[in-house]
Design a protein around this nucleic acid. Structure first.
Length: 335
DNA sequence: GGTCCACAGGAAGCCTTGGAGT
DNA sequence: ACTCCAAGGCTTCCTGTGGACC
């Protein structure tokens, strides 16, 4: 017994024909995407990627979409750009300048989207942006970030001055907007009258992140005997959050997942605020039990920062005092 | 005011991978 | 087949931090 007729509209990846509540942003994107550099910024789950992808689909120029969470160095991003432009796999081993030379031959009238740019900046600096924004037949670049509000603070002055993006800000969804979107998706996806209004209201009043909201409603619908009730929604809250974090972690390494698991264990065991050193210790213990391979604390420290950027954990930095220089970390209950 | 805390995070170097030249 | 080169992943080493405590 299931209330789902077609699960597609409830999937986060689904791009509906009509997008609710983002008319202004959509227009800005449509008007500017192909003619000038853009910086799209806003918290997670506000529809940035979604709308940019839709704008790409409607663009007349060629487009490249790079997810910098997966391709977090200049080199890897260049490989992706070239591979999308030439429609062929590009292996490693070439000199960066060789990739750049080949891209320059092809990059005419191209729009390049760099999603999750924070991760590339964190890992490899701004060389990629500098290079792309100074190309002779300059492609237009759209950078999407969740953590970096003001790129002029993160980029070298010389990079920012040639990049000069127009900023498009995405505000968090309001409860009413989340409600409206969920209701629309539920109507397309589920049997009629199979969702209680209170159930949707509860989700909409708990989270401003549409990605979480959709995961939540979808999970509830999959569990429902014949109706999605508020009780059911409340009951599966934790499970839905876990599913959301799993999808966020799936693009990262097993070490990231072991690290996250270590923090989860420690916060379950008592203190919900944990010190970095304790997490490293637990990570080492768990990783060596799993397959023996453990990474250094230095490396894991970088991974911890990535989890912070994904908004999965919250870190408070101490630069002195009785605790010394450390981070106090807690799980982020995504809202 | 000197020492300690408990790491953060930069720099340098090692190892592996894969293309290019001979 | 061999050597050379460049890139990323990772480790090792090291310096810096600033309030608490003596």
């Amino acid at each position: 017994m299931t209330v789902i007729e077609d699960v597609t509209p409830l999937k986060q990846s689904h791009l509906p024909e009509k997008i609710i509540d983002r008319e202004q942003e959509q227009q800005l994107l449509h008007k500017n995407l192909e003619v000038r550099n853009l910086h799209v910024h806003g918290p997670r789950g506000t529809g940035k990627t979604h709308l940019v992808k839709k704008a790409i689909g409607e663009a007349e120029t060629r487009t490249c979409y790079i997810n910098c969470l997966k391709h977090d160095t200049q080199y890897k991003a260049l490989q992706q750009i070239l591979s999308q432009l030439s429609q062929a796999e590009v292996k490693s081993g070439y000199h960066t300048s060789e990739l750049q030379r080949r891209i320059e031959k092809q990059a005419l009238d191209t729009t390049i989207v760099l999603d999750e740019l924070d991760f590339l900046l964190l890992n490899d600096g701004d060389d990629l942006i500098y290079y792309l924004s100074r190309l002779e037949n300059t492609p237009t670049i759209t950078a999407i970030t969740s953590n970096t509000e003001d790129l002029s603070e993160e980029l070298e002055p010389r990079t920012y001055s040639s990049f000069q993006p127009r900023q498009i800000q995405f505000e968090p969804y309001t409860g009413e907007q989340i409600y409206e979107i969920l209701a629309d998706r539920a109507w397309k996806s589920l049997e009629s009258r199979s969702v209680h209004r209170n159930a949707v209201t509860y989700i909409a009043s708990t989270t401003q992140n549409i990605e979480i909201a959709l995961t939540w409603l979808r999970t509830a619908a999959q569990k429902a005997e014949d109706t999605v009730t508020e009780d059911l929604v409340q009951e599966i809250k934790e499970e839905a959050f876990e599913l959301y974090t799993e999808t966020k972690l799936q693009h990262l390494s097993q070490h990231h997942r072991t690290l996250y698991q270590a923090l989860k264990e420690l916060s379950k065991e008592g203190d919900h605020v944990v010190q970095a050193g304790d997490i490293y210790q637990r990570y080492r213990k768990n990783a060596s039990r799993q397959d023996g391979e453990t990474l250094s604390d230095r490396r894991i420290s970088d991974f911890l920062k990535q989890l912070e950027h994904l908004n999965l954990i919250e870190a408070k930095y101490h630069y002195g005092g009785r605790k010394g220089k450390t981070r106090e970390i807690q799980l982020n209950k995504p809202t």
